Amino acid sequence: MTIDPAGEVARIEAERAKLPADERLRLEAGDAPLLRIQLLHMLERAKKAEAAIRRVRALHQPIHHMGKPWCTECSHRRSTGPKTYEWVAYIPHPCPTIDAIEETQ
């Protein structure tokens, strides 16, 4: 189930705007449903971000060549025949992309 958090927040705020001020204050003191909607939205965004990081990691895998690990996505090779190629640029693994998504300590 996908929730439209902005729409839900707008709906709740519109309903509350119709209420007397003292009733609005009482409701705002117990905003658990509104906070739950916001937390669900944050959780959905976090899951999407984690999936994107997994996809980036899958692209930037190391390949061992000449005894060193190189990034398969950042390093470049060119075709030298129908089934042969040569490497023309070597980017060490972990590459800058992987470094950028690594957690710093």
Rank of each mutant, 00 (worst) to 15 (best):
M1T: 12
T2I: 13
I3S: 03
G7H: 07
E8T: 10
A10I: 13
A10H: 08
R11P: 02
I12K: 04
I12Y: 06
I12Q: 09
E13D: 15
E13R: 13
R16S: 07
K18N: 15
L19G: 06
P20S: 10
A21M: 07
L25Y: 05
E28W: 08
G30I: 09
D31W: 02
D31V: 09
A32D: 08
L35S: 06
R36E: 14
I37T: 15
L39Q: 12
L40Q: 08
H41M: 05
H41Y: 10
M42G: 11
R45L: 15
K47I: 09
K47D: 11
K47E: 15
K48I: 04
A49L: 12
A49V: 08
E50R: 13
R55Y: 05
R55K: 14
R57Q: 14
Q61R: 13
H64W: 02
H65C: 00
G67Y: 03
K68M: 07
K68I: 01
P69R: 03
P69A: 12
W70F: 04
C71K: 03
C74M: 13
C74S: 09
C74H: 01
C74G: 05
S75E: 02
S75T: 02
R77M: 04
R77P: 00
R77W: 06
R78T: 08
R78A: 03
S79A: 14
G81F: 02
G81P: 01
P82N: 03
P82L: 11
K83P: 00
K83H: 12
K83T: 11
Y85W: 06
E86W: 00
W87Y: 04
W87L: 00
W87D: 01
Y90N: 00
P94N: 06
P94W: 09
C95D: 08
C95K: 04
P96Y: 09
P96I: 12
P96C: 12
T97D: 03
I98Y: 09
I98R: 05
I98W: 09
D99A: 14
I101L: 11
I101T: 07
I101K: 08
E102A: 15
Q105R: 13
